[in-house]
Design a protein around this nucleic acid. Structure first.
Length: 623
DNA sequence: TATTCAATAT
DNA sequence: TATATTGAAT
């Protein structure tokens, strides 16, 4: 694979090394700082304080500058004139400014600047500047639009994920078909930015809007401008800090180029949705209201309305599933269940799913391909409780229990929540089978998330030991969210930090290793979320930028005790069950290792430890 | 005010 | 089509 052949340093692909960058900034201190940083990333930087000097240097062709980064406030020259000159030379320009003057930025972008960075510029942004160059190289003047990506890209369906457009083959290889998106490097950078932020916050709603610190250039081709009118903004911004995919975005603006006030369209990432479901689970039927959910999720920048909207959709989906579930499931569900019963989850040859993922088209999907949609027997034998999901009635029954006990012991116990979370994924098949969900990549992905599968498997295999374990959650099933269009590829930036991102791309496509890596991430995230469930899901601080999802051992997450009131009393859950569970987890490492890709031992250990601690806490903590 | 429904937008 | 936003009703 090509991407594998690339060398990589500091997260940069080989071709980005030694990139000649001309840095122009009359602010000497800033100049030095930025230059220094860029050099650390292996770029070759030439500095000058004067724009005129910069142009001279370029004209003289002393160096083959691949990129110019300049302070938009040029004492000796009009920045737009400066830009035009460089534009003619096809040298990408990134403007910088200490104050984010949107109008100025937009104008610059409209004139052809690649990006606009507000100072202070994050390391990651500096690290990512090469992307503009790459884009340039690949598509000197024109940014090709793929027919099917145009406006749809905004929906996040087709292009999601692969941020690096044409560079896709290099940076992001995933499988078969990495789709390049027209946003190309631009979006890539935006994504990256979002990613960075993400690293600091585990869950975020992303939206398309102006980047947090950078504004993306509008497409400069006329045809593209047309596209832009229709399509949405590209730069990905995080509503709460984000993770997610990017969409083709530029700043929100109308056809006049004026900034509109339209709210960006948020995207519920799997991570976010996980928190959402975790909140539901923790809150219990009666308290699962938008506001409470939001509080419990503790994710910044999402609104109650958004949560309400998500809840609405969620309920609809559950309802749909339920409706279909009351009818019999197709009989083809056996392979997976067999696999599961054989302790092979994902099934040894989960490849069917993987493959599908592999071969997925942008819309991906197993949709319609029921031949491979197998579901565990449990789904067949334990129908999702049919509860009215109308109005508030949907909470009448424990939606979170898919098995026979619809006890409303929503738990405060993370382990239980965890179980539920796992159950979530057990119903995926069902969802696929019975719902109209766009069973998207996400679903497949989730199915391939070993950490989940594994745990699930464990629980499953030990099901008889834990008769009261309600680990099948219909809602989870409904976790469709995790699916569909908002889902991202395992190796996608939003899910991983840049390092991982590149690393994975170098590791190869969607192979077990990657999968494993991703799984680990998911495991962490899941654990993190679960850990917080008892009182508050994700404190939202998790700001260790080097660890994403947040390192749950970080200790930085504070549980909001006030949220505890929202947590249903579930301390009565027999701890013995968990003890057994713990034993299983610890004593049966093989069970874990029998699965294709498993979270590494460290994760398992951490999880066990965490579980133990949590149980201890729960057993003593008053509510 | 909070929540939900349903229409609308993307 | 699926998903998110938003106006309006409750």
């Amino acid at each position: 694979m090509e991407h594998m052949s690339r060398t990589e340093t500091n997260g940069l692909p080989g071709f980005a090394h030694d990139l000649q960058i001309l840095l122009v900034d009359h602010d000497t201190l800033s100049l030095m700082c930025i230059a220094s940083t860029l050099e650390q990333y292996s770029f070759k930087v030439t500095t000058t304080e004067m724009a005129s000097a910069a142009l001279s240097m370029i004209t003289e062709q002393k160096d083959d500058y691949k990129l110019v980064m300049a302070n938009i406030n040029m004492p000796d020259m009009d920045s737009l004139s400066f830009l035009r000159v460089l534009h003619k030379k096809e040298i990408p320009v990134i403007f910088m400014s200490s104050e984010m003057n949107v109008n100025v930025a937009k104008k610059a972008l409209a004139e052809g600047a690649c990006f606009f960075l507000e100072k202070p510029i994050s390391l990651e942004d500096l690290k990512s500047v090469w992307q503009h160059v790459y884009r340039k190289i690949r598509t000197p003047r024109k940014y090709k639009h793929k027919p099917n990506c145009g406006t749809k890209m905004n929906s996040g369906k087709d292009c999601q994920g692969i941020k690096i457009n044409e560079a896709g083959d290099v940076l992001r290889p995933p499988l078969g078909g990495v789709k390049s998106n027209e946003a190309g490097g631009e979006s890539s950078l935006a994504t990256r930015h979002a990613l960075d932020i993400d690293k600091q916050n585990t869950c975020t709603l992303t939206c398309k809007a102006q980047g947090a610190s950078g504004i993306k250039r509008p497409i400069d081709d006329k045809e593209e401008q047309e596209e832009v009118k229709k399509s949405k903004v590209n730069t990905e911004q995080t509503v709460s800090e984000s993770i997610n995919k990017n969409e083709e975005g530029t700043e929100n603006r109308d056809s006049n180029g004026t900034t509109g006030d339209k709210k960006p369209r948020a995207v519920w990432t799997p991570e976010l949705h996980l928190k959402f479901t975790a909140a539901l689970s923790a809150l219990g039927d009666l308290k699962s209201r938008p506001k409470a959910i939001l509080k419990l999720m503790n994710v910044p920048n999402i609104t109650v309305r958004q949560v309400a909207s998500h809840l609405q959709k969620y309920k609809n989906q559950v309802q749909r599933i339920r409706e279909t579930d009351t009818t019999s499931l197709p009989s083809s569900l056996s392979r997976l269940s067999n696999c599961i019963n054989r302790n092979e989850f994902p099934p040894a040859k989960q490849s069917s799913l993987v493959c599908q993922y592999d071969q997925r088209t942008s819309s991906f999907g197993v949709r319609g391909n029921t031949a491979q949609l197998d579901a565990p027997n449990s789904l067949i034998t334990s129908p999702i409780p049919v509860a009215g999901f109308n109005n508030h009635d949907y909470r009448r029954q424990n939606l979170y229990s898919g098995l026979s006990h619809y006890t409303n012991h929503h738990t405060n116990n993370p382990s239980e929540f965890y179980l539920r979370a796992q159950g979530q994924f057990q119903n995926l098949n069902q969802i696929r089978e019975t719902s109209s969900f766009g069973y998207g990549a996400g679903m497949n992905e989730i199915m391939n998330q070993q950490p989940l599968g594994i745990e699930e498997n464990r629980f499953r295999t030990s099901e008889s030991h834990f008769p009261n374990m309600n680990y099948i959650t219909p809602e989870a099933a409904a976790s469709p969210y995790i699916s569909g269009n908002t889902f991202r590829f395992p190796n996608e930036p939003p899910v991983m930090n840049q390092e991982q991102y590149y690393t994975s791309s170098l590791t190869g496509p969607f192979d077990s290793q990657n999968q494993n890596q991703f799984s680990t991430e998911v495991a962490r995230l899941t654990t993190e979320v679960l850990e917080l469930v008892p009182e508050q899901i994700a404190s939202g601080n998790a700001t260790n930028p080097n660890k994403f999802p947040a390192d749950f051992n970080d200790g930085s997450q504070k549980l909001d005790t006030t949220a505890g009131e929202a947590s249903p009393p579930n301390k009565n859950q027999p701890l013995s069950e968990y003890d057994e569970l713990l034993k299983l987890l610890e004593e049966d490492p093989q069970e874990a290792s029998c699965v294709g890709s498993v979270p590494n031992a460290g994760d398992a250990d951490r999880y066990c430890e965490w579980l133990r601690e949590t149980l201890l806490e729960n057993s003593t903590d008053p509510l």
